[in-house]
Design a protein around this nucleic acid. Structure first.
Lengths: 338, 338
DNA sequence: CTGAAAGCGCTTACAG
DNA sequence: CTGAAAGCGCTTACAG
């Protein structure tokens, strides 16, 4: 049957304490004893039981990540960098997909925080802080990722897109556009809110058309992206801010399909998911905003491990910045920039 | 401190056995006793410790998934459907990303099978079966996903693309193409092999140009996709089979960039990732092959749970089929199909 | 330099 | 209808 530490101890003629210590290098063991133990381990093909170990120590070396949509490239990449960061430090990653559904988020937070993971990373789809807050057991390590709450109780790592969006709108204005439309994700998300407020401020500052119908929210479902686009085209937009990487691909395809030329028929500023081939191909036709997903993943990993290993360390609210890539400009207005 | 089952038992004035049984509905408990227990639980805010429970029962209710590349839409979607299937059955999903690296796969299989999960789903990047086989502890539940080995020791769920590819090549031939190029993923993968053999067989049967240079392998790194495409364009291909969803987007973008029109300058047959907007937009210009990712995820979940819950059940090798979507044809050759 | 033994928080025969 | 108690496989003070 299963080989346990006692079997090893017996075969090596030592105590289980000694076996444990030689495996974990946790106290001095004479060379001779160590050899005997190692041989016994090899002979029996012993592997310490991770389950027993984590039960005993209370440490699972596992982090949970509550994601709104794994198949969204942004989150998929986040999962990837996070997994890499954690694996290097001998931590595992459990993921739970909420599909932007609050009830699923609730269930998952409950399940994972009940002794399954040492800490939780959450990109919450919740609207009210209180509902979220109630789910978290006292002193349980939690770090918010990408999406934050107004109340700053938990540590967080997020991305600010204010400056890039503000600037991109100004540039469209400088180029002569008067009606700039905005397409964002679900209105309730902090990310959407911040992006929208940057847009609004720039629109006001630059004296652009400021109409309710120039702002459209997608919900990632059905063909909401196409609906948003059509609504804005009907508004005779000459510029478009696509404030969401998931929708970017679709918008570009639809524009193409409709025979509207990017950078000519309409000016486009769009979030672009890291590593996307769009990046290179459309670099000359549109402005892009790229979020630092890799840094986001690393920072999130770093913060959650710190909360776990040093519970008393201060709660930090970390904000990274996206980078703005104006497209390669025609010589004629090369000067207007910077 | 932590509230345990004993605290609840004490407060309710019953034994821990009774508390355990009322929680798990595992033997009859009188209504009165049950009430007392439930109240005690509520009063103390007790949550059973998942770690202790799984240690005791030996069941973790967790499945591990070894993925070659999470940020690849195909696998991301697979993870998504899998997570959903498992969550419905109260199982969790741990993922490990190997980045197509055999050493990372080895490490991850070792770690996860050492008591962290009840079973393992693997989309292996390994070439030799033996190396893989050695890593799996005796009788440990394993199901291969998407990629299989010639030796049929483990259960598997994979997708056959033979028929769709064969047929698509024939249709290109029927349309008059003579030089059809093939772009696939890494040569060592079983999926690439199968796709290639369908291509080769069709090329031979239809009497198309059969040249080594018409077959190109990408490795998902650097700009290998562009290199493949350029190599094939240099071969004067009039048709192109892109046998990998990841490369499809790039190929389309590059062709567009080069000003080569799909369906006119070159005929394209391409794998398309499920849910991609390409699907709709290019439906009229190219043939597409869509893999049943959702079914794949469900079938994988089903099989691994069966292996865990009924270890003696027969090892099955499940093969799903992709669907072939010929593009909407010009009337002129509406007859040649079927 | 090493061992005997308690104990982490549950579940589950066994007994009544 | 319920309880007393063993035990899952480790780690870790405590003791020598």
């Amino acid at each position: 049957m299963k080989v346990t530490i006692s079997d090893v101890a017996k075969l090596a003629g030592v105590s289980t304490a000694t076996v444990s210590h030689t495996i974990n290098h946790t106290r001095y063991v004479s060379e001779e004893t160590r050899d005997r133990v190692m041989h016994a381990i090899a002979e029996l093909g012993y592997t310490p039981d991770a389950s027993a170990r984590s039960f005993r120590t209370g440490k699972k070396r596992t982090i949970g990540f509550i994601v709104p949509d794994i198949s969204n490239k942004f989150f998929a990449t986040l999962v990837e960098t996070l997994e890499e960061y954690l694996a290097q430090r001998d931590y595992h990653l459990v993921i739970a997909n909420t599909k932007e559904n609050m009830d699923r988020e609730e269930t998952n937070i409950r399940l994972l925080s009940a002794g399954l993971v040492d800490g939780l990373l959450v990109a919450s789809t919740m609207e009210e802080f209180d509902r979220f807050d109630q789910l978290i057991p006292a002193a349980f390590p939690v770090v918010l990722v990408d999406r934050v709450f107004p109340v700053k109780k938990y540590g967080s790592v997020s991305v600010s897109n204010f400056q890039p969006i503000y600037r991109s709108v100004c540039r469209l204005a400088g180029k002569g556009d008067r009606r700039v439309g905005f397409i964002g994700g679900p209105e309730r998300l902090s990310t959407t809110q911040e992006r929208l407020s940057a847009y609004r401020q720039a629109v006001a500052d630059c004296g652009l058309a400021d109409e309710e119908l120039l702002v459209q929210y997608g919900d990632f479902k059905d063909n909401s992206t196409l609906r948003c686009l059509d609504a804005l085209l009907q508004q005779q937009c000459d510029g478009l801010i696509v404030a969401n990487g998931l929708m970017a691909t679709e918008i570009i395809m639809y524009l193409q399909q409709k025979g509207i030329q990017i950078g000519n028929g309409i000016d486009l500023v769009s979030f672009i998911d890291y590593n996307s081939s769009f990046n290179e191909v459309y670099a000359n036709a549109m402005d892009s905003i790229v979020q630092p997903v890799d840094e986001l993943g690393r920072a999130a990993g770093e913060q959650i491990l710190r909360r776990i290993e040093e519970p008393e360390s201060p709660v930090v609210e970390q904000v990274l910045s996206s980078t703005y890539h104006p497209h390669t400009m025609p010589i004629s207005w090369n000067h207007s920039d910077r």
